[in-house]
Design a protein around this nucleic acid. Structure first.
Lengths: 151, 151
DNA sequence: TAATCTAGGACTTGTGAGGTCGTATATGAG
DNA sequence: CTCATATACGACCTCACAAGTCCTAGATTA
């Protein structure tokens, strides 16, 4: 459990691929390389482009390129572009009333956990995915600094 | 995404409830309190008992009790008892080859993220779920993104 | 012995992830 | 100009699995 969707997986693989590749790459190219259904890969890339993580070039010899440097795009960015906001609980937002969970006794603690996860995802950059170099800071257990807070 | 299953939710709620309640509680009792389908709550509790997190007392006036103290049971324990091993990727274990992902380029980095998440879940105890004491703020064993979550 | 509880297998159902198809549109090469 | 190659995107299919139900058996107490 707590698994991320295959689309998100594909997205991360594509991003890592693009982070390494100098020029641009087409959906088909990436899809074939990693044995991902082409149509699906295309959808994922389109979504990433729409969210401003990739720039697209239409037409023959077209393809996708990272919109920013790989060090400027976090894993959280990618996942959220594909799967929407990362949340552990069913209650999607903090101000949410989840009907039957009005009396929920674990809501707040779970949000803290959720924050930890989001923080971890926000600190890991696509560049680290690409060249699997454990970034210096990374060795610390959980040491998550306060104040990441995407917004 | 990255949401945990409802069963896991229910399990955590039940554990938190039991952590507070002095004696034992029946499945029905807990289910009704949190408006959870009784049969389902029962199944969840049975599972927790089978995994050694709860002790059960059969028969009339029976019910469930925490097998250990609430400070000795982590959120990870609970989730894993219900949903199986927590893993971010499709590849279930480290030594696994996920067929089509033989050429996976993000496997190892994702494992690191997965470890961070598991670590966070392992460090949060049921006791913290129960009395929603923001451990992070108070004792700061883990520096959580405690920023004023103002959505 | 009746009521209340856990134990657990078998079953049904609803939903959404995963994947496909069709079509429109942009672009470069020959 | 036109063809091959791309992206763009909505609509659709399908099938596994979470979520929930049902049923029966066995334990315990009053």
């Amino acid at each position: 459990m707590l698994r991320l969707s295959k689309k998100a997986d594909y997205a991360l693989m594509a991003m890592a691929h693009l982070a390494l590749k100098p020029g641009s790459a087409s959906a088909r190219e990436i899809a074939e390389k990693y044995e991902i259904p082409t149509e699906l890969m295309a959808k994922v890339l389109q979504r990433l482009a729409r969210h401003g993580l990739l720039t697209s070039q239409q037409g023959a010899r077209g393809g996708y390129t990272l919109a920013r440097t790989a060090t400027g795009i976090s894993v959280a960015d990618v996942i959220q572009a594909i799967d929407g906001p990362v949340s552990v609980t069913a209650c999607s937002t903090h101000g949410d009333r989840c009907g039957q969970f009005a009396k929920c006794n674990v809501r707040d603690p779970l949000w803290r956990i959720s924050d930890i996860i989001v923080s971890a995802l926000s600190k890991t950059m696509v560049s680290e995915l690409a060249n699997d170099v454990p970034a210096a800071v990374e060795r610390a257990p959980i040491q998550i600094a306060a104040a990441p807070v995407r917004a």
